[in-house]
Computed example of a mutant assay.
Amino acid sequence: MIQTNATFALGEQQVAVRDLVRRVALEKVAPRAAAIDASAEYPQDMFDLLNELGLFLLPFPESYGGANDLLSGCVAVEELGRVCYNTAYILFMQWLPIGAIIGGGTREQQDRYLPDLAAGRTRGAFSLTEAQSGSDVSGMKTRAVRDGAGYRISGAKIWCTNAAKSDFVLVAARVDGPDKSGINFFIVPTDTPGFEIGRKEDKSGARGVPSNALFLDNVVVGEEQRIGPEGDGFRSVMEALNGSRPIVAARGVGLAQGAIDHATDFISNRRAFGRTVSDFQGIRWMVADMEIQTEAARQLTYRAATMVDAGITGQAMAKAAAIAKTFSSDTAMKVASDAVQLFGAAGISAEYPIGRYFRDAKVLQIIEGTNQIQRNLIARTMLGREQEARA
């Protein structure tokens, strides 16, 4: 059952996008969702469908054929996520390298890579995480050493989502210095000698979009493949990623709304003790709380996206994006957990889809910056940096 949500935060363009994507999601995406999750195979047909709809262009500048409308992007991701988290994830993964190159790349890099990404002719991935430095970026060990007019990159990465399907990966490597200021991103084609994609992780959620380890052994890249000035590229790319975080929040809103859709349909057609399950007051209050939390997450997400579209950057944007991502993914987890409870024993059966929402929601609390790290960021904008204890 699809419910109609309030649209006062949306303009004509966003409503049109929502209605189009909702129809396509119900007709073409929903029937594929269970099979994508079960097989853990990349759904090329869903990538092709998103490309045919022109959705790869939504959040980006009009100079590259885009609509310059992140709010529409969030609405599209929300509607896809209601029926299939993996398809929504594909859309986000196509947008992620585009946003990073727009935020930190040169005009030459943008002209070279963005048209093919926006048209779906190429795919990219983003690699930051290492085994010993997930949230602790300053512990990164992958290094890019100057070699003539370019660099030699050596190191290992984990959890690089989309790498196995990508033409290039944005790889973070330390150029100089012990902290984040010495880190740059490099555009590394996946067929570069010395670049190896490791085994695919067997994930509990987000199963249709592969995540792999990466190994770099003296991978040679030119200076033109470095994003941003040496020692400054990390900051510019991460600022751009703050602007994409509302899309991550929209995935949480979609998951929560989808869980509500399935749960309300189930309890409205189930009887116990001579009554329809949806008539019990305890159940009704549970569903009401699920709706309250999801609507609050939706409005925080729309607010953050609207700030991006208005050109707001810096601490104000970082805080709003972190709040939206944290609240929306926590809400997705809470709502999906309650939905499983409403299904009773059926909730833990693979025959029903609700378990998929539960597993995908857990993933979202961890990826794209753990919610603990997001809370640190929010507190830092309010209280300043925490003082390191000195013995």
Rank of each mutant, 00 (worst) to 15 (best):
G311P: 03
Q315E: 09
A316G: 09
M317L: 15
A318S: 15
A318Y: 00
A318N: 07
K319W: 07
K319M: 14
A320M: 10
A321L: 14
A322V: 06
A322W: 00
A322R: 07
I323D: 01
I323E: 12
A324Y: 06
K325N: 09
T326M: 11
T326L: 11
T326K: 12
D330W: 00
D330L: 13
T331K: 03
A332D: 07
A332N: 07
M333T: 12
K334I: 15
V335K: 08
V335R: 04
V335Q: 09
A336C: 08
S337D: 09
D338A: 13
D338N: 08
V340A: 11
Q341V: 15
F343K: 01
F343I: 07
A345W: 00
A346R: 03
G347C: 12
I348N: 12
I348V: 15
I348S: 15
A350G: 15
E351M: 14
I354N: 06
I354V: 14
Y357D: 04
Y357R: 10
F358D: 04
F358P: 02
R359D: 02
R359Q: 04
R359C: 05
D360H: 06
K362F: 08
V363E: 04
V363W: 00
L364Q: 05
I366R: 08
I367F: 05
I367A: 06
I367C: 07
T370D: 13
